[in-house]
Design a binder for these strands. Structure first.
Lengths: 304, 304
DNA sequence: GTGAAAGCATAGGAACTCCCTTGAGGATCT
DNA sequence: AGATCCTCAAGGGAGTTCCTATGCTTTCAC
């Protein structure tokens, strides 16, 4: 079987024209080199050197082999170097899971933080919705994530880090003058985001529970995919919505100027947490990501 | 110490996403693969896979390593092949790929030329269809080939040398009085050769494109395996066909006397090219083969 | 929930490889 | 002719590789 060691020995012998010299160069005994060369010749089925009196002379086959041997060794070296660079965070890809509206709080800033500190790396932020991200976590596609704390979390370890209140947003100031009760919520014309994940979305779960406890039936008039769209619709006066306060602060001035918001009654919170598989040993990259993400989210939401 | 064996194991595990599957694939026991991967991880000082429930998932470091590992293995393979080529030239067989109808142009004369010059070698002409030959080239079964230039050619170097026009052949002289348009082609009762390779055959690709642009649906009435049969069927008046002009010149007088041919409108060409792996060092025998083949095909087709 | 199946890790032992030391057999140079 | 340098071969110790058997965890189906 062809091996890198054989090729290294071959090249040194080729350059120096002597087994003994090659042995000195590589720090082995001469017979070891002799054996490596012989096994390489046997494995290829050709003679690489003519043993001629004092020293050895490469054959034409050796001439053919040399550049390829060099290329192979170089490729292996490059492989090792590439890995070391990644290890030192000089390059490579860091994957981190994050739920939809979390990107409003932290993602841009987080990415720039990482890029600033490690200019060579590529960062991937994965996932739109918490439940989606959790599936990826269980499958091992993602090492760790920052998501809205889920009610069910089998096989996953959850570390709450902050919470954010859910607020009612409307263009009609009279509707945000006082906290919104379950009854008023049930009567409102609502637009909610994250349509595709209706069943599992944690904010919807919370709302549903609140309405249900008050004896109302949850019904949404408009469903859209992302928070921005929802708030834009509010801005046009077509509906009201319920979003995280952090999202409201960030988006309302831009997308729905003139709109205002208020708490729900009782107040509803969504908890943000770092989540990863139980018993997982986290890579340094993931640990860094977590540290920075936690730092940022605590600036905009209520720390726990 | 980094070894080729470790890299091979790593790649197989990466592709299959499972140690057990990789062990089956490579013909080892599962613990052996496990050990190789672990020793590679230890040698590099990084984790390459996360062991996650059923199966393993590559880390981002593994993503980084993969292309380098592939390059290294490929370089080693190329080294071995280079040596084998030289070796083969001294003792054994020259293999040369050639697409189906090219043998009508050059094969017999080419082989006698080569045998005359190198009495010791054995010559094999391989392949019926261009796409088939290309697979053999990528796999390294064939050193070089003369084929119809392919649209896609990853990993292969293509040198166009000549082109030949595609012509419409029929027993009915009225149908070959004027160049055949896409519309007439769509209405014709056609027989086409190379059935087995329907999807990838380059002549069919060209025809399909021509018909499609004119808004017609390509449909063939009769499918046969080789050009000779197709032209014989034309000779019996059962259908018309489209073949290379070179093939028509060679075969129509013999197999379909009385048939005539004309151009398509717009004219369609197929380009012949010499193809080999990129960065391959060609053996003297292959170089001779190429030289002679090019010389011969330029006698019968239009040189480029 | 519970049992079965799948998959990785670990342990222990046989076979092999790697590399050393020692000594023999030839070229080359003086 | 003899000294010197080099390759080659044999034997033995250390380390690897690869196997079988087994244990543990996760996943899937009923």
């Amino acid at each position: 079987m062809l091996s890198l060691h054989q090729l290294r020995c071959f090249l040194t012998v080729y350059e120096l024209g002597s087994l003994t010299a090659a042995a000195d160069e590589l720090g082995y005994a001469q017979p070891s080199i002799s054996e490596q060369v012989r096994s390489l010749e046997k494995s290829l089925g050709v003679q690489l050197f003519r043993r001629v009196g004092r020293g050895v002379v490469p054959t034409t086959v050796a001439d053919t082999l040399r550049p390829h041997a060099e290329a192979t060794i170089a490729a292996a070296e490059e492989a090792r170097r590439a890995v070391q660079r990644v290890k030192a965070f000089e390059t490579g890809t860091i994957r981190f899971g994050m739920f939809g509206s979390a990107r409003l709080y932290v993602s841009a800033g987080l990415v720039t933080d990482v890029l600033e500190r490690y200019p060579g790396v590529r960062v991937e932020i994965i996932g739109l919705n918490s439940s989606e991200v959790m599936d990826d976590l269980r499958r091992g596609q993602i090492e760790a994530a920052l998501i809205a704390a889920p009610p069910t979390s089998e096989g996953l370890e959850v570390l709450p880090v902050a919470r954010d209140e859910m607020v009612y947003v409307s263009m009609d100031a009279s509707r945000t003058a006082t906290p919104v009760t379950a009854r008023r919520l049930a009567e409102a014309r609502l637009v909610l985001a994250d349509t595709s994940y209706r069943a599992t979305d944690s904010m919807r779960t919370a709302l549903r529970k609140m309405l249900h406890e008050a004896g109302h039936n949850p019904q949404t008039r408009i469903e859209v995919e992302d928070v921005e769209t929802a708030i834009e619709l509010v801005g046009r006066g077509l509906a009201d919505t319920v979003v995280h306060q952090g999202a409201a602060k960030e988006l309302v001035p831009r997308l729905a100027p003139g709109a205002s918001w208020t708490s729900l009654r009782p107040r509803q919170y969504e908890t943000f947490a770092i989540v990863h598989r139980v018993n997982a040993t986290l890579s340094p990259a993931a640990q860094l990501m977590i540290e920075l993400a936690v730092q940022r989210i605590r600036d905009v939401a209520e720390p726990l």
